[in-house]
Design a protein around this nucleic acid. Structure first.
Lengths: 340, 340
DNA sequence: TATATAAATGTTAACGTTAACATGAATTTA
DNA sequence: TAAATTCATGTTAACGTTAACATTTATATA
């Protein structure tokens, strides 16, 4: 290993104690301005870079937070990370990013990684295949804080930053209904994930409110990805032609993209033959051949709020646990059937 | 802080020494199978999670690598990170992500953060405003390895994973020329960044080879982002109408998107009035109103190779420093003027 | 000027782990 | 059966830093 300067070396160089060097480096009080400057100058000259490992060990605090995202390539998440990053940067926290690839086992692995690095807190959006909340609880018992975002776990004492999924889903479904559609299918997420359940609920409630009977064949689990949306839509198109739905509510935009592909493949048109709406306002949504009507989730905002809340929890034991709701926005484009 | 189990507590519980526990936990040799199992079972029961901080301190090795990306929301980078992540996960390395926001100062800050966490190596794609290579050198002198990707710094003893930017730029420019265009402008990156310089070089060489005079007004610095592309294109369109170029080579896709916006705003059409090509094959490129002709950079591959090379450097002092070239691919779409 | 007070600096121990060496028990070899 | 070897386990010290307490020096107060 190359030359790594330590506090001791600086101290020896100047003939002072290690504590004096430490104090100067950390802007502590009770040190003469002249001494501080001398130390700082020498540290810089010698190319000193603080060893956070050692510092964290003795302070039992890392000034670091971890993030677990299910899929870094979905435009929603980088945008969230951007928001998180802005807050951590401003508050002098460091950030460790991990990735579950929508896989429960990898999510647990990621959380263990973060825990073993003794981060002060973790931001999580749960993986598609996540089933148990045991790991989250274990982490919290260790004294680490968790704030969920978008895909939350409730009633385990962690805060959560999200949009009103059920209402939003209700609203976008009603929007379709307002055009006269009654044969409406839902491509759902797994109900073990919060947004899978809540968006399904909103969908069902909208039908009920408008006296539309629920056709069980019209609820197909697609998961959150494009390929899942594609195969779920295929399954629907396997129904006899006269049973085909006239409109689709997809659990999110990527699933909607996959469904659109399946629809186009059988020679049907969006929205003329089948209308479709999504959720999240992916970066690609407005660029689609049939621009996608969707519920915008302000990703940057969500990241920012989640990071802020987490830091508050870390810095104040008594910070209240709460659901923080961010406004969503219905973005009407062409895919839902009307275009001005 | 909540209850945090230590090796000592496990040792006391079982009436053995800390080393025995440590050996069991780390799968070391010279420990009875029965003892190991007993320790493992107790550790699990007590909810032990290894303290990587303490371990890293004594081992002077963190099994962690850092990544510095300039802009996490550009689709190229998440895809790279995905590749990196796959490799680190498979090799049991942990990953710390940082973000420079294209800003030299923040890049230095990010590197210092990683250095203070004593990562074993760093993957960097340099920021748009990066000027000096001093910090990279300092880090390498500390014994940390650097592997650059996409935007590289040469001749400082670090490996680099990239496409052949100059040749690729040459090729895509010639592709435009093959359609008969001669009035071709270039929206360039800053020449202080490798790809800014090399892509400009390729552009120039293609003109020269085809006996097209270089018009200095046709080279405008746009940077790597959409808004930069937009304002650079505006500047070009401020020229007298008869001086307008008929085709544009943008340094990357986001810059091309910005330029397209500017072109459409003044009522011109792509590619009929002005043809345009980009670089990277952004996720949005094929969805654009005029699908963008571009040079595809296999982002996932780049991430994978870069991570693999870095881990090789870390594990083998004598690993050779090299430029690793990944094949790029010309993707011909509509924006360059011909569409089949 | 002696004393009280404040400011600057130093010393010791601890954070949680593992490397390196030391010991003791069990097994093999001559 | 004694000596040599192997295997399992234990002890000590170290990684680089800072918290907590201790000491010295400078400054303010009576």
């Amino acid at each position: 290993m190359g030359h790594r300067i330590t506090v001791k070396q600086i101290a020896d160089e100047l003939g002072v104690s290690m504590m004096t060097v430490s104090r100067a480096l950390n802007d502590s009080p009770n040190i003469e301005a002249k001494t501080r400057e001398k130390v700082l100058a020498t540290a810089k000259k010698m190319g000193y870079i603080q060893n956070h490992i050692a510092r964290s060990l003795v302070q039992r605090k890392t000034n670091t937070i971890g993030v677990v995202v299910p899929e870094i390539t979905h435009s929603f998440f980088p945008e969230v990370i951007r928001g998180v990053e802005e807050v951590t940067y401003a508050n002098n926290y460091q950030l460790i990013l991990t990735h579950s690839a929508e896989n429960a086992k990898r999510e647990i692995n990621a959380i263990d990684t973060l825990a073993s690095k003794r981060v002060d807190g973790i931001l999580i959006s749960t993986a598609e295949s996540a089933k148990s909340s045991k790991k989250y609880k274990q982490i919290m018992e260790m004294g680490m804080y968790i704030v969920f975002f978008d895909r939350c776990v409730h009633n385990i004492g962690a805060s959560c930053v999200r949009i009103e999924d059920e209402k939003s889903s209700y609203k976008i479904t009603e929007h379709l209904i307002s055009y006269g559609y009654t044969k409406i299918a839902h491509l759902s997420g797994p109900t073990s994930v919060s947004i899978g359940q809540t968006r399904l609920n909103g969908f069902k409630k909208a039908l009920k409110k408008n006296n539309i009977d629920l056709n069980k064949k019209y609820i197909v689990e697609s998961g959150f990805h494009e390929d899942g949306g594609y195969s779920a839509m295929k399954k629907i198109l396997d129904l006899p032609k006269k049973e085909w739905p006239r409109a689709i509510v997809a659990v999110n935009d990527p699933a909607a993209f996959g469904a659109m592909k399946a629809i186009l493949e059988v020679g049907l048109k969006v929205p003329e033959d089948i209308a479709i709406v999504g959720f999240s306002d992916d970066i690609r949504s407005e660029l689609m051949p049939a621009p996608l009507t969707t519920m915008r989730q302000p990703a940057y905002q969500i990241g920012k709020k989640a990071a802020e809340k987490l830091i508050k929890h870390i810095q104040n034991k008594d910070e209240i646990v709460e659901d923080i709701i961010i406004d969503s926005e219905l973005i009407i484009r062409k895919s839902c059937g009307i275009y001005k």
